[in-house]
């Protein structure tokens, strides 16, 4: 049993959890903004939320897009353990982020105050997760040079 996984597969696995979970949280914040949950503090709510997921998702989107432009399959692979750790770190971070948003109605302070305080536990986690994801997503693949047919030896002309 191999202890390695294709880099493209690892990236796709991480992208799936980030896009689906992040998209769900994004939708919640949009709905809260529409229904006036934050009153006059909508700007503050978005100022807090955007840096929590958008940089990671933007990085993933950019790398996946760049990869899509390249021809040929990426055959590079990474240690499966590293991918598993990164996946669970992402899961943990998104879970803590969700708890912060979803349990806010039970908090004694107002939403924005809670979100600002949450930076104490979200920032360190985000740093660790971001580092792991950056390693997996920023290793560049150079395009293989197009295969050039070997030069055919030309026979000297009789002329």
């Amino acid at each position: 049993m191999t202890d390695r996984i294709l880099l493209a597969k690892a990236r796709w696995g991480l992208s799936k959890i980030w896009f689906s979970w992040g998209g769900m949280l994004f939708t919640i914040i949009v709905l809260q903004s529409i229904f006036g949950r934050y009153g006059e503090q909508v700007k503050e709510a978005w100022s807090w939320f955007i840096p929590t997921i958008i940089p990671t998702i933007a990085l993933m989107m950019g790398v996946l897009g760049a990869e899509a432009m390249l021809s040929g399959d990426d055959v590079r692979n990474v240690k499966k353990n590293f991918y598993t750790i990164t996946w669970w770190l992402s899961f943990g971070y998104l879970l803590i982020l969700s708890i912060t948003i979803l349990l806010e109605p039970f908090a004694p302070m107002n939403a924005i105050e809670l979100y600002l305080i949450s930076n104490f536990w979200l920032s360190p986690l985000q740093g660790i997760v971001g580092g792991a994801i950056a390693l997996l997503f920023t290793s560049q693949r150079t395009e293989a040079p197009p295969e050039v047919p070997p030069p055919v030896a030309q026979e000297p002309s009789d002329q």
Binding site: I28, L31, Q32, F35, G36, R37, L102, P105
Partner: peptide, 9 residues
């Protein structure tokens, strides 16, 4: 809960 989550209180 849904009311508290999505609307102002």
């Amino acid at each position: 809960y849904i009311r508290a989550l999505f609307t102002a209180s």
